[in-house]
Amino acid sequence: MKKTVLHTADSRGEANHGWLHSRHTFSFANYYNPERIHFGVLRVLNDDYIAPGMGFGTHPHDNMEIISIPLEGDLEHRDSMGNVAVIRHGDVQVMSAGSGITHSEYNKNEDAPGKFLQIWVFPNKKNVTPRYDQITLDLKERHNRLQQIVSPSPDDDGVWIHQDAWFHLGRFDKGFSLRYDFQKPGNGLYVFVLSGDVTVDGTELHQRDGFGVWDASSIDIVSDSADSEVLLMEVPMQV
Score class of each variant (00 low, 15 high):
139 L>C: 14
100 G>E: 12
212 G>S: 08
16 N>R: 07
26 F>W: 12
113 P>T: 15
40 G>P: 11
139 L>R: 11
120 W>Y: 05
153 S>T: 05
120 W>T: 07
9 A>T: 05
156 D>F: 01
175 G>H: 03
143 H>R: 11
98 G>E: 01
74 D>Y: 13
209 D>G: 14
159 V>C: 10
96 S>P: 08
227 D>P: 03
236 P>C: 06
158 G>D: 00
188 G>W: 11
225 S>L: 09
118 Q>C: 07
175 G>L: 04
12 R>M: 08
119 I>W: 03
100 G>Q: 08
4 T>H: 12
133 D>K: 00
129 T>Y: 00
179 R>S: 11
66 I>Y: 03
166 W>P: 00
35 E>G: 13
201 D>R: 12
53 G>V: 04
69 I>D: 07
26 F>H: 04
198 V>M: 10
145 R>N: 14
47 D>W: 01
3 K>W: 13
151 S>L: 01
218 S>W: 14
221 I>H: 08
115 K>F: 06
98 G>A: 09
234 E>W: 09
178 L>K: 09
155 D>V: 01
161 I>A: 05
203 T>P: 13
26 F>Y: 12
164 D>E: 14
72 E>W: 14
133 D>P: 02
232 L>R: 08
136 T>L: 10
54 M>S: 12
79 D>H: 03
218 S>N: 15
39 F>Y: 15
165 A>W: 02
10 D>A: 14
206 H>L: 12
3 K>E: 15
213 V>D: 10
2 K>I: 15
169 L>I: 10
109 N>E: 12
57 G>Q: 04
210 G>D: 07
233 M>A: 10
57 G>D: 05
91 D>K: 00
154 P>E: 05
13 G>M: 11
96 S>W: 00
97 A>E: 04
174 K>V: 05
102 T>F: 06
65 E>Q: 03
182 F>N: 04
238 Q>M: 10
226 A>W: 03
202 G>Y: 10
46 N>A: 08
95 M>T: 00
103 H>F: 05
175 G>M: 07
63 N>H: 13
5 V>S: 15
58 T>S: 06
182 F>T: 02
43 R>N: 11
193 V>Q: 12
177 S>I: 08
212 G>P: 15
123 P>K: 02
26 F>S: 01
18 G>Q: 09
93 Q>H: 06
210 G>V: 10
135 I>Q: 15
168 H>M: 10
181 D>P: 14
55 G>Y: 03
70 P>G: 00
7 H>L: 15
98 G>L: 02
166 W>Q: 09
189 L>F: 09
202 G>R: 11
90 G>R: 00
49 Y>L: 14
237 M>N: 11
16 N>A: 13
20 L>F: 07
21 H>C: 13
173 D>V: 07
6 L>N: 09
232 L>M: 12
227 D>I: 02
231 L>S: 13
200 V>Y: 05
223 S>P: 13
203 T>Q: 13
50 I>G: 01
142 R>Q: 14
1 M>Y: 05
193 V>N: 13
125 K>E: 09
31 Y>K: 05
68 S>Q: 09
195 S>L: 13
230 V>K: 03
77 H>D: 02
105 E>M: 04
225 S>D: 07
76 E>F: 00
211 F>P: 13
5 V>M: 15
17 H>S: 05
194 L>W: 02
121 V>R: 08
190 Y>V: 03
119 I>K: 02
37 I>S: 10
31 Y>Q: 08
191 V>D: 03
153 S>V: 07
196 G>Y: 09
